[in-house]
Amino acid sequence: MADGGDEPEEAELGEKQKKEIAMWFLANAPAGEIQYVAKDIKSLLGDDGVYETAASEAFPVYNKTHLVSLEMPDRSGNVIITRFGEIDESNYLDPRTAQVATVDHIKQVCSNLRPATDEELPSFYIEGFRSALDAELCKYVDETYPKGTCAVYCTKGKDVEGPGSGFEFTVVISAARHSPQNFCNGSWRSIWKVEFKDDLQVVELNGSLQVGAHYFEEGNVQLDSKNECNDSTIFQSPEDNAISVMNMIRHHEMEYMSSLEASYLNLPDTTFKDLRRKLPVTRTLFPWHNTLQFSLTRDISKELGIGK
């Protein structure tokens, strides 16, 4: 037969292409696996300069996409790496503790902490709504996600001083489980945009939920699921708002979880069956011992009773 694909491209890859390949692998690493991918790709490249350029570009993107959460050095909690709290590429706001954390994207650690300045924080009026929602969110996340971290960011109108203008929060929930010794990793990410529309006196909710799981003991199987949902409620006091917004989030996330369960339950009898049945349509194993006869008589449909 054809003797392999031994026609190596003569031209060696340029540094730019190598960097792009490295970045592609890093950016597409499953949840919790970028360090392993980095180790592999570094050794395959055999060029630390190219690797470092690729890593310095790819890690920040990955950390933000995966909502990586890092413990803050004073142990006051975790800071989530997300564009919603991004001050600059290595500094991220933790709205709950009003601190700014400096992160090392490649090591995925938080190296320094400073109090946030007044300009980085929302007004007193906005903070009232934000902290009320954050308190409800923490309760929910604590009881729902064993390894969950969460935050509420003011993403629009943080300087609004009182009624009359709208503003927007972004609620982020990130839960990850890494179990490399069991060849299993996974993550749950929710991002909820909460728009407070002052003129219409409504609060609009837009959520995007994403769940991934990877099992790779002697194989490679991945779950990738996404959903979008929206809802709305009336504009109320900070405390009442917090409760109704959290009720909607709880409701939608619960529904999404049930739909995931339903998809798994449907798998064996419907979805998977469309690819390959467990048993042939005849419900007996294939009669391999009779095949000679089949091919001699060419009367296969009659023999198998599947009448074509």
Partner: peptide, 23 residues
Amino acid sequence: LRNSLDQVYFGKTREMVCTLRPP
């Protein structure tokens, strides 16, 4: 192979989801 994909591999990803957010 079909069986282990169905029972083991898909099952493990489902378990992971339930670990992230226990029902």
